[in-house]
Write a protein that binds this DNA or RNA. Sequence first.
DNA 1: CTGTTAGCGCGTTCAG
DNA 2: CTGAACGCGCTAACAG
Lengths: 340, 340
Amino acid sequence: MSHKPEPPAMPTRAVTKEDVARAAGVSHITVSRVINSPEKVSPATRERVEAFIASMGYIPNLLAGGLASRRTRIVAAIVPTISHSIFAETLRGLSEQLCMQGYQLLLGQTNYSEEAETGLVEVFIGRRVDGLVLTGVQHSPMTRQRLKAAGIPVVETWDLTDTPIDMLAGFDNHAAGRAMGDYLYQKGYRRMAFVGGDDPRGMARVAGLRESLRHHGAAEPVHLVMPMGAFLQAGREAIGRLLTQHPEVDAAFFSNDVIAAGAALECARRGIAVPGRIALAGFANLEIATEVLPALTTVQISAHQIGLTAAEMLLTRFDGDPLDQAVHDLGYSILERDST
Amino acid sequence: MSHKPEPPAMPTRAVTKEDVARAAGVSHITVSRVINSPEKVSPATRERVEAFIASMGYIPNLLAGGLASRRTRIVAAIVPTISHSIFAETLRGLSEQLCMQGYQLLLGQTNYSEEAETGLVEVFIGRRVDGLVLTGVQHSPMTRQRLKAAGIPVVETWDLTDTPIDMLAGFDNHAAGRAMGDYLYQKGYRRMAFVGGDDPRGMARVAGLRESLRHHGAAEPVHLVMPMGAFLQAGREAIGRLLTQHPEVDAAFFSNDVIAAGAALECARRGIAVPGRIALAGFANLEIATEVLPALTTVQISAHQIGLTAAEMLLTRFDGDPLDQAVHDLGYSILERDST
DNA sequence: CTGTTAGCGCGTTCAG
DNA sequence: CTGAACGCGCTAACAG
């Protein structure tokens, strides 16, 4: 069609260690050492080589390096979704800590599908990531088997289990749900509802809530399963349904603070008294919980700490150091605010 | 110290193509073909080989494959931060589209540091990613040079420029700021403020706002630079300062909807009339903008579309197909709601 | 349809 | 302190 001289002309070949070595009059291994263990090279040649590296714009091929050394300096993290703030803090903790040590983060999203997780795990093993961070403790048998076979360090997060694949950094969702039940009951609420998705951790929290209510002899909680697309909106819709379809409910416990905040905003809009007409409680202690009116009672957990802990465990493992603990129960606590 | 028989005993070696080939009585290249181009293998042997692959739990080493084929099927994305929802939508768009085609996303965070970006770009080039997505259009000379030298497909996002490195999917921040200025002026506001960070895109928006106000002969806008750690809180603090230190301001334009929402919530808390006492406008049309009271006037942009478009351009480039457009101006529009 | 021959660019032995 | 050989596991040509 057109007759431009030539599109940018993909450079035929990238600069390689050999090229630098030839230019500097040394062997490629010396160049390698200048990069990976400079102290093993005489200052004179080191400086010369460094100058050539800079002037030639040499960038080491980490792919080849990884293949040869069997270390990629990549950690993969698999989360249900990145578009909601719930896991963002964990990812940030992970990323920060790993980045400082020269590791990169490879990201996978499952959209809460176990199948998707299984596929991602296969790909990540194939990529020879140095470590893997999983969300939750429920995984397909295939996933567990592959991970064990690959022998790669794994951290499961955001929950606890007696049978971790390898390492664990989380908290007890069931106990947290129960604690919230106990707290709400003790505050005098008797007809409760749980609003959230049907993912394993949400289910654990309802189960805990239910156990608590049974124990106190209170009525079974209403369980509203919401689509987890738009959180604030889900909260708004949920409170609407609760108010009309279950007018007896006097306290609602939400799967996370964003949904709870959506409910709080809707109550404000409708002029419904919180906690007078209905009490609201969230989960995770996100920023929004303190900013809505009334401020939300919530379950405080350490989302950021989960990421940090996971990263630290992986890093000590990478260094070949022994782990003092492979399982970290990061705990939770009820944070009482004005919404209950 | 202890005398455990042996820690989990890192499997000596992973299963390789050779192993499968030997077991199946074919050559390793046949195994390769069964995986990469099954149609070139007779159904009989294919099934045999597939059975062995499954039973032996063989997982191809993508590192070696990438080295040999010079395609890694990895795309890297560099964002200022992942812990705020602003870029999350873009990442989701990218990730969804890429994932469907078998690509993975490698993530980098700069915390708004150009230096950090430069370093990340080097590492990602070293990892031989197939493509790179950058946030913004302002990059260090080193970054630009390396990217051109590497000849790898690059998409810059979230802004426009006359001198893109390669491809571009964004919108005009300066014009968007000006449009908001025009809109607010036309609504009768005369003393405006801009609240945001000092990143290039934020600065472009204030510049646009300033240009609009000058053009209309209105007063220079107050510019409040906020730390970008906690968005809602930043909004709350900003509105506080505005109200006391700049009581003449009658309209505030925020760098994004989350900050604006923080301001709106604080106004609600203090009983300050919006827009009666002060008008509030946000940016990006995030979910929260429609959920606070009053709903926020904002600048609608297509964060998700940016990700999709970037992914599509990269993918067609990977397929060697020609691009109809290397620059996509995704536009913006003023979305009038109740806060102005 | 199948196999053979070459690297991809580097790190890891081991010698000097 | 420096270098030579070898192989990491795979794909890309070509050949049969």
